[in-house]
Amino acid sequence: MNQPKRFISWLFAGIFASFAIAACTTPQGDTSGTAQLTLVSYAVTQRAYENIIPKFAQEWEAKTGQRVEFNQSYAGSGSQTRAVIDGLEADIVALALALDTQRIEEAGLIEPGWEDELPNGSIVHKSVAALVKRDENINVEKWSDLARDDIQVVTANPKTSGGARWNFLALWGAVTQAGGSEAEALEFVEAVFKNVPVLPKDARESTDVFYHQGQGNILINYENEVILAAQQGDVKPYVIPTDYNISIDNPVTLVDVNVDKHGTREVAQAFVEFLFTPDAQREFAKVGFRPVDETVASEFAVQYPQVDNLFTVTDLGGWDAIQAKFFDDGAVFDQVLAKVGKS
């Protein structure tokens, strides 16, 4: 008499387990219900993404019938990189520099070759370096002016700030890309850092040191940050060195381990592809980023001065070589600080 009861109990247990497994496993490409995506980016992109996300969500629902909701996280690029490596389950990362994305790749969360999976080497928008003046009376127009004795320069520390590495590379490349030797570049960089009164840990702190603590009369910043600050009512005179400048390239990619874990690869891939469309590119351009879409770039040409010689990280050897040469312990930057007495 007990055997049929046991059989029925096992049968119901098996059916329940099958339903539980089915409920916990979302087939790739399933467009029912609501998809949840986590976007991790750096602080100054927030305003653009808050305008882009509703456009994508509307388009995706019209196309597939599936709603999509975003969890969004914005902070310094280096901090966001560490957070993702330490367990923040981002589906998409949009960081300030490819070196940060490479670190997530090295942690085993992003598959190699991510640069080739989207247009333009996965660079979704760009910027250039800008020199923000304390006031209009400061006669600074080009990089070489920063070595003058009457100039004090505020820039973040590239040892602790990923973004500040762009500043250092802009200074170095302004010499080497113009045909100068590395010895001449080193001499120039030393002269500039001799004029640096303090090295804040990140771009946000360097902005605070300049604007609120009143240190320095020139701040090396990014064009997009200056434009965004002006839109928010904080207008400062600035100049874009147009003889030589560095292309500050900002990548986007999927975090492969997480999209596969969450079953969100299809919708996440659609979102990152949407970022390269004219609709999304215009939103980036509106808040100060140089768009990678040529048609949109032409629409905003007045806003962005043309740089005669725009060099890239590739021109300087690529991030792996740059990190080893300039920013590892004991490398060029440490030698510069020791030479100017700031180590």
Rank of each mutant, 00 (worst) to 15 (best):
Y49G: 08
A75K: 13
E50G: 04
S247T: 06
Q306T: 15
N167Y: 09
A229H: 08
D334F: 04
E141L: 06
A129S: 14
T312H: 06
N224S: 13
E106V: 04
S41Y: 06
I52K: 14
D243E: 14
V154A: 03
E184S: 06
G173D: 03
D320T: 14
A324M: 10
K133W: 09
F311M: 08
A147D: 07
T242R: 04
L199R: 05
H212F: 12
V259R: 08
Y238E: 06
A268I: 05
A331I: 05
N51V: 00
Y74A: 01
E106L: 10
V226W: 06
Q213S: 05
D315H: 05
Q177L: 11
L275Q: 12
L169G: 04
K63H: 13
G65E: 15
A229I: 04
D256S: 11
I21G: 12
A35H: 05
V239D: 01
Y42P: 03
K286M: 10
D145H: 13
Y49T: 08
T314P: 00
N309V: 13
E115P: 01
E106G: 02
A270G: 11
F271V: 13
L11H: 02
K261Q: 13
G14M: 11
K63P: 11
F333M: 07
K133S: 04
I53A: 04
A83Q: 09
W166R: 00
L219C: 02
A321K: 13
T45H: 13
A147M: 10
P158Y: 12
A156E: 05
T295C: 07
Q66G: 10
A185C: 07
T64E: 09
G341R: 11
E273D: 15
Q102F: 07
L109K: 12
L146N: 04
P251W: 02
Q281D: 09
A270K: 03
D145I: 06
G263Y: 03
A83K: 14
Q46R: 13
G76A: 06
R47V: 12
G318Q: 05
N51W: 08
P112T: 09
G318W: 15
V154W: 00
V198C: 02
W166I: 11
F56D: 07
L97N: 13
L99Y: 10
T31E: 13
T34L: 14
G214M: 05
R103E: 11
P278G: 06
V226M: 12
D234G: 00
E184K: 10
Q269P: 02
T312N: 07
F327Q: 01
V235P: 01
S247V: 02
D243V: 12
G108A: 08
V292D: 03
L109E: 01
I104N: 05
G76D: 11
G180L: 02
L254P: 02
W114P: 04
N2M: 08
A83L: 14
Q231V: 00
G121C: 05
S343C: 07
V40L: 03
E69L: 05
V272M: 00
I246F: 04
S18D: 01
L131Y: 10
K236A: 14
